[in-house]
Design a protein around this nucleic acid. Sequence first.
DNA 1: ATGAATTACGGACCCCGTAACGATA
DNA 2: TATCGTTACGGGGTCCGTAATTCAT
Lengths: 279, 279
Amino acid sequence: MISYYELQQFVAFYYSGTLSAVAEQFHISQPTLTRNMQKIESLFGVPLFLRTKNHIALNESGLFAAKQAELLVHQTHEMFQRVRDFDKAQHTIAIGSCAPMPIQPLIHRISSVYPDITISSEIKGNHILLEKLEKDEYQLIILPTNPKNPSLFCQRIGEEHLMFCLPLSHPFAGRKSLRLADLNGNAILILNNLGFWSDIIKEKMPDSHLLVQRELYSFGELIKNSLLPCFSTDLTIKTFGIPENRVSIPITDAEVNVIYYLICKKENLKKFDVLFSQI
Amino acid sequence: MISYYELQQFVAFYYSGTLSAVAEQFHISQPTLTRNMQKIESLFGVPLFLRTKNHIALNESGLFAAKQAELLVHQTHEMFQRVRDFDKAQHTIAIGSCAPMPIQPLIHRISSVYPDITISSEIKGNHILLEKLEKDEYQLIILPTNPKNPSLFCQRIGEEHLMFCLPLSHPFAGRKSLRLADLNGNAILILNNLGFWSDIIKEKMPDSHLLVQRELYSFGELIKNSLLPCFSTDLTIKTFGIPENRVSIPITDAEVNVIYYLICKKENLKKFDVLFSQI
DNA sequence: ATGAATTACGGACCCCGTAACGATA
DNA sequence: TATCGTTACGGGGTCCGTAATTCAT
């Protein structure tokens, strides 16, 4: 019966043209190659080689067969890879989120429901999230809107409200609430990788200079040691508190008071129904 | 290294559900199956089975893998078949002809040029010939017209002229020439499987009753023992002569004085150039 | 108790590598 | 003469079947 290994040797012979080269490549002896090629030929049941006493080459059928064999070797390799990928997907949940804060509680919830599963998470823009959910690169995504797509299952999982975080000395520090437009034009400190928040802020405060910090540490230091405004939300305050000498002023723009939805494909719903029912 | 035999067993297990059934099916022992499935599992590198002490079944990944394996087994079979078909095609020329007479000389010519080749020939209608040439079901076809298709190579190989073959007592027996219309309405003897000739005759002599004979013998007997008109051509006369007590009168309709063309795909021309150059 | 899967064990056979040979450039 | 392919031969490993074991229905 034909083996994958021998087919590979046959394909290698197609490329290198001599048995000795293939033998070296596969770390086996030349006679083994002779025998394996004879075996291949008998399995195909048609002459594949042009033999002279000390030379062997593929004939027309052999050239055709080698190309076919190469295809099959490739298909075999792909089969193994697909099965491994499938198995990995069985034990992995990839989450995409529009914002950082809702991720942590969701991960905790998932790992308590499915203890043996690997969870990966990323922050991306809303449209990318939907695309990758479609392509099964994510199984779950978190969006700040309900996409109302009939093939998707969607459940509210929380909300988040953006605030300005101002030094006490700031002229607006005493306000009960603000609008994004009120600070448009001011330089503002923000963290990198805030997902959809960045998009909204750029849109509603087009004249502001956003001082993007990549590291949480330098961000914290700058907040402590500067009078620059920055943002907080009810969720960040719950987790990190309000920085010293600052106040948090709610922002009333509708776009920055969002409801988060957890979304999966309906076809995967049976896999996640326990999760959804617990939220 | 993976063998396709073991993959087949794996697929068989997917269908039968027990190792013993597969063992029986493949005429091998149960322990061998156990080992081969363990080997398959280790080659995939992921768990494929749900095992209890005396039961084994496929898990989710196993079901997926079995379907993938079935595909691959199928592709393997197809590969072998394609190579065998290719090899057969290397040693076979299938000819399609619009008429019987040009075939024999062509076959003789081919077998002298390519002594080791198998030749098959069929008579079909013109449009079918072109279709099957396109699909590589024929490598060569003979048509009574030049198709003027830029992807086809076409060379004149001969001509044939239809005649009425009339008993000496027939009123038209003394004519120098006739037209098909002259005998329209008369019953006429013809042989079966005359290719495009039948089509022309039916079209130009719509009122004639065609007495189609399947066998050459009964056709010959009827010619000898009846006064019914029939057809001959310059080529049939060259091969078989003119029947006793009959004369052959040329027919002047353009459609029945044909030039034969031998046609192949231009992409196959290098294979046949020796043949074409000899004609 | 029957039947299914696995493990243990012994032997056959297959397959590999070394060596020898033949042939060609 | 060096290289390449094939054949010969001997040993080791693999793979198979029988037998034994365990478990479940």
